[in-house]
Amino acid sequence: MIVSVASGKGGTGKTLVATSLALSLKDKHDVQLLDCDVEEPDDHIFMKPSITSSEVVSIPVPQVDEARCTYCGKCAEVCAYNAIAVITDKVLVFPELCHGCGACSYLCPENAIKEVGKEIGIVESGNADGVKFVHGKLSIGQPMAPPIIRKVKEKANKQGVVIIDSSPGTSCPVVEAIRGSDFCLLVTEPTPFGLNDLKLAVETVRKLDIPFGIILNRTGVGDNKTEEYCRKENIPILMKIPLDTKIARLYSQGIPLVKGIPEFRNDFLGLFDKIGDNT
């Protein structure tokens, strides 16, 4: 079973929920935590995993053999990303624009293009306190997160419980992270920013046809419009976490909520039961 944790707005508590849910379930289930926020992966700060394997993620980019090339321009014509250009007697490749689709090398009439791997990040796996841990890290200056997210997700063992922590937003990295989940937890806070971005996140999970529920974090500030919205849309609020400086301080120190305040473990076990009822 795959449970993903997402949010439109950043900083609403995805990492807090993903890490505490993993730690609460580990005695009862075979639990894997996949940190798919490969731009800013933070789960390791809380889980402190011992990393046992590391692999480089590359995407295939074209390399042109100019001895064979006739500068016919076919590669530039078929590239949808303008990642390859032909000017009279020269071929220019812009690897940072390349999506690695393979069209240029396959369609080159002279067989002059081969693909070489370009490193865009790494995937690391290990163990953390009885939880199997995997995360990906996008290299600095690289734009494309989805190929790394796909690599992290290849490690998923669907026989157990797989918890996926996603990046904020609603565009391609989020879609890549939560696609194929059995359930998605949307974490939000009761403020106008939280609500605006929650609505976008709800549209996203609905478009992907993933069952979902809400975790309302930092209750006690803001307004009650998020709860009104959930009631009207018939979206279940599965858990509430109060605004509490003690929780914020634990977070600031990199201590998972259920380790700092063990009573929360029951809330997360209850949350998991509710997820079961809603899938």
Binding site: E39, I140, S252, G254
Partner: peptide, 21 residues
Amino acid sequence: TEPTLSGIHDLERVLQVCNHF
């Protein structure tokens, strides 16, 4: 940034991106 370990970690990465560009 914010004074959390996550905030610091993420600041380091975005600062590297600024330097890179």
